[in-house]
Simulated assay, not measured.
Amino acid sequence: MTASADHLKALLSAHAAGDDDQFYSIALQVAAKSARQGHGRLAVELRELIDSSRGQRITRRAAPTPVVQPRGELGSLLSADYPDVRLSDMTLAEGPNALLEKVLHEQRQRGQLEKFGFTPVHRVLLSGPPGTGKSMTAAVLAGELGLPLFTIRLDGLISRFMGETASKLRLVFEAAAETRAVYLFDEFDALGADRAAGNDVGEARRILNSFLLFLDQAPPESLVVAATNHGQLLDGALFRRFDLAIMYAPPSAEQAIEVLQRRLSAMDTAAVAWSDLAALTDRLSHAELVKAAESAAKRAILGGNDMIDAEHLRNALNERHSLRHA
């Protein structure tokens, strides 16, 4: 055995920390020790492996936390996914983008914050019109941090287990304490509606009170993300319980053009005068713009070429406007 126990521990520690320079330094020490002990061939092979590995410069990516698909009662309440999207894949206004960078930075430096008695942002409320990127944001947080994304089926939670919703919520938050992941409560207004609303019932108030209690106790290792299209319907206590609230809006004309260009990046768009399309993107959400781009692309592909016809794209955008008013 040419590597000492100390060398092995140091190698594992450097690998776990992602410190390539330290890892290679220790590996070279092992190679040098092998040469001193008369294992010349092994020393040469180790140095060749180190040089080869350094030359490849493979980018490290955090591996997702290994989690099986939820089963039993929990399986009926949420589904698991392992997103591979990044913040750079989204087209966002400067404000929401900066806030998401803040969440990611604090989560990545969680250990440093906890040394001083602070916790990172881990309870995030997303509010805005449909199709503006709220669900994708949860996927981005999971993808950037190498975590699973658990989506809670709120409609089923409330309609199927009305009398047992608090116990089902407890299951979800217990999972958050046991398994580090991003937990997305989509269409959150179904759960977090204002307790003072005239059509509220006692059971709904108890459910919301239970959620607030569990949210207060949510561990900082996991991220609890709530997304709603109707922020004005939410109980005021919810805004105070979340660490951060991010407001989404339909894209500006410049952002809308960027959304179209991103989706059509595999196509030839040289003939498209993008500035002429700006007015047609008004009030369309990110999702609607993606649909329009896909419609124009499919028409071009089925027509036998990869060039986007500006007229096809114009028609696709008008179709999206027509659907909004149907």
Rank of each mutant, 00 (worst) to 15 (best):
R110I: 00
S53H: 09
M307A: 14
L244K: 07
L46R: 10
T137Q: 00
R86S: 15
N199E: 14
A138T: 00
E73N: 11
A176R: 02
M307C: 12
D84H: 05
F239R: 11
D268G: 01
P120K: 01
E319C: 04
I58T: 14
V85Q: 02
A14V: 09
G236S: 08
V290L: 08
G192R: 06
A10S: 11
L78I: 10
K33T: 14
S127W: 00
T59S: 13
V201M: 11
I58A: 14
I50A: 12
R41I: 07
Q255E: 15
S52I: 01
R240Y: 06
A166H: 05
L145Q: 03
A193D: 12
A204V: 11
P251N: 08
M162T: 03
R54G: 15
Y82H: 12
E48S: 15
E73Y: 04
G131W: 00
L317V: 04
L260W: 07
F150V: 07
E178N: 14
D6L: 09
A296C: 11
I58D: 12
A297V: 09
F173T: 06
A139W: 00
G95D: 09
E319K: 07
A181Y: 05
T228C: 04
V67D: 02
A273S: 08
Q107F: 10
A278E: 15
F150S: 09
F116N: 02
D243H: 11
D216H: 13
A10T: 09
H15M: 04
R205F: 01
E187K: 09
D306Q: 13
F23K: 06
L157H: 01
V67I: 11
Q255A: 14
Q37F: 07
G156H: 01
T2K: 08
H122V: 03
L77Q: 08
Q107W: 00
A63L: 14
R170V: 03
I152K: 07
F118Y: 11
H39Q: 15
T151G: 02
A316F: 02
F242H: 08
E254K: 11
I58K: 15
A296V: 07
L284N: 06
L87E: 02
P83Y: 01
H7S: 13
R320A: 12
E73D: 14
L46T: 03
Q112A: 10
D309A: 12
H15I: 01
Q56A: 10
H105K: 10
L12V: 08
L11Q: 00
P96Y: 00
D189C: 05
S52C: 07
V121C: 12
G111W: 02
G117F: 03
